[in-house]
């Protein structure tokens, strides 16, 4: 019996997806060239689409990263490198200062974007129960090992809940067309969402406890983790590449 979801999540062994995440993290944090980081982000975008990440979701992630980049730019431009108000020194108005600040901010945003895309890919490629099994095998108590998997499961659930609350309030006549409407809808959408999240967390915890969660330190799993030869080879390759990035 296979337990792989029809959604396609969990198509690779969690050890392989972890190695991939590790490599991207190493690249994003250790590579010095901004051009290389930008190229890496472009590659990640292609890979994201290949592994089945929705274009809209990727777009949202990149938009969030761009907003963070803009904030970094504004902060650096206003306060200068040393935290002193640049306007007081006259530096904020100098064209020569603007370009390095802009490129530096873009580079930081690109590094954050790479980390975000890698995390999204990890989420897409890894089945939560496989991750739990992997962590339990590594000696982490089951109660703790299950937490990342529960969190991974909870994210799409909360997305569905938020959509349902949004639809429900819109169907009651709440305007949601314009950006201003959306801002005004924060309370009528946010409150039921928070309430639902808390209620769901409570009921999930109760259901888990009543179904024996945490009774044994090492429970059994429905399917066994097995790496194919191709997955082993790919993992080894990724680890070597990570080491190379960190050392070179």
């Amino acid at each position: 019996m296979t337990a792989r979801a029809e959604s396609g999540r969990g198509r690779v062994d969690p050890r392989l997806s972890s190695c991939w995440l590790l490599l991207i993290a190493a690249c994003a944090l250790a590579v010095e060239s901004g051009a290389l980081v930008a190229g890496g982000v472009a590659c990640l975008l292609v890979v994201s689409l290949l592994v089945g990440l929705k274009l809209r979701l990727v777009g949202h992630g990149l938009l969030a990263t761009a907003l963070v980049g803009l904030q970094i730019f504004v902060m650096r431009w206003v306060f200068g490198e040393e935290g002193v108000l640049a306007a007081g020194m006259g530096a904020a108005l100098e064209g020569g200062v603007l370009v390095p600040i802009l490129s530096g901010s873009a580079e930081t945003a690109a590094r954050l974007g790479a980390l975000l895309l890698a995390a999204m890919q990890f989420h897409q490629l890894t089945r939560p129960s496989d991750l739990t099994q992997l962590l339990t095998r590594r000696g982490i108590p089951h109660r703790w090992a299950a937490l990342p998997a529960i969190a991974l499961r909870f994210v799409p659930l909360m997305q569905t809940e938020l959509t349902a609350v949004w639809e429900s309030q819109a169907s009651r006549g709440l305007p949601t067309e314009r950006a201003r409407d959306k801002l005004k809808a924060l309370l009528p959408v946010g409150l039921p969402f928070v309430y639902r999240s808390m209620r769901r967390a409570n009921e999930l915890a109760l259901a888990m406890e009543l179904r024996g969660f945490g009774v044994l330190a090492r429970p059994t799993f429905l399917s066994e983790l097995r790496m194919s030869p191709a997955e082993r080879a790919a993992s080894a390759g990724l680890l070597v590449a990570t080491l190379a990035v960190l050392l070179v």
Partner: peptide, 14 residues
Amino acid sequence: AQIVEGTVAEDVAF
């Protein structure tokens, strides 16, 4: 709210 796992079989097996 009581579904824990990512597939129906895994959830029944939980």
